[in-house]
Design a protein around this nucleic acid. Structure first.
Length: 255
DNA sequence: ATGTCACCTGGTAGGTGA
């Protein structure tokens, strides 16, 4: 089974690229972030024609997530139960016996901002809920745009980024606590090329200079750890014309 | 080089968020 995550930064702009990528890289399921579409505008017919059933949850301008799968997904959950949130950030479903949780973590803007306070509250709520999901579904994958670079090796210039958003001790502690539920960073189960990033700022020729962060992450539960055959970042779509600023991340699970 | 992109409001640009 192949799963993927991709922050598309506007699905209306990126739909042709998504369809092209799926045609070349058929996955069993993919979660999307930053669709930026209200539910009535979601392109489910185009995706259905490409062989993907969709569950989606969006809003105007910001955020918005989706779960696409070749087979039907079940037990869909939108956002974190019990956490009152106006922002569409989470979609979960069961696909092929695996609990798949796709998430668009808050950006947080700056460590001294209100948005950072919200990010911490959101992370607390996510961790509590994922804990209960794990208890109910031992075979679980949490993947998406985490907006956290877990370690210095996930940052092109750790000195410049020290204490900056995505790299604060508070965010990294949240990441460790999430992993502490009994999850594993699938990318780090394998030897990887150094300077592997999943996001490059549109500005400053960052992609050309390979100045990026690894903030798009796949966490797998203990029960799945031994079944992970590969995990990789596909940076080729970042070379497209009008690319998303994020690259898709793919994980392979043995049956 | 603070060198971009997407989307909004409200208009022939400017603001916001990332």
């Amino acid at each position: 089974m192949k799963l993927a995550t991709w922050n598309v930064n506007s699905l209306s702009v990126r739909l042709p690229q998504l369809l092209a990528w799926l045609a070349e890289h058929p996955v069993d399921a993919i979660v999307l972030q930053e669709t930026k579409l209200t539910d009535d505008k979601f392109p489910h017919a185009e995706l259905e024609a490409a062989g993907y059933r969709a569950q989606w949850f969006g809003q105007r301008t910001y955020n918005g997530v989706a779960l696409l799968s070749r087979t039907d997904s079940a037990d869909i959950v939108r956002n974190i139960p019990g956490f009152d949130d106006e922002q569409a950030r989470v979609i979960a479903g069961t696909v092929g016996g695996i609990r798949v949780i796709g998430a668009y973590f808050p950006n947080g803007q700056a460590p001294d901002s209100e948005k950072f306070v919200y990010k911490m509250r959101w992370l607390d709520a996510l961790r509590a809920w994922v804990g209960s999901e794990l208890a109910a579904h031992p075979r679980l994958v949490l993947l998406g745009d985490f907006n956290i670079a877990p370690e210095d090796r996930d940052v092109y210039d750790p000195v410049a980024w020290a204490g900056q958003i995505h790299c604060t001790p508070e965010e990294r502690e949240q990441f460790r606590r999430l992993v502490g539920l009994g999850l594993h960073d699938a990318f780090r189960l394998f030897e990887q090329p150094p300077k592997s990033w999943s996001w490059w700022d549109y500005r400053n020729l960052a992609f050309r200079k390979n100045q990026g962060l690894r903030i798009d992450i796949v966490l797998v539960s203990e029960a799945l750890k031994g079944r992970v055959g590969a995990c990789s970042i596909d940076k080729t779509p970042r070379k497209n014309e009008r690319p998303s600023d994020h690259a898709p991340v793919v994980v392979e699970l043995a049956d």
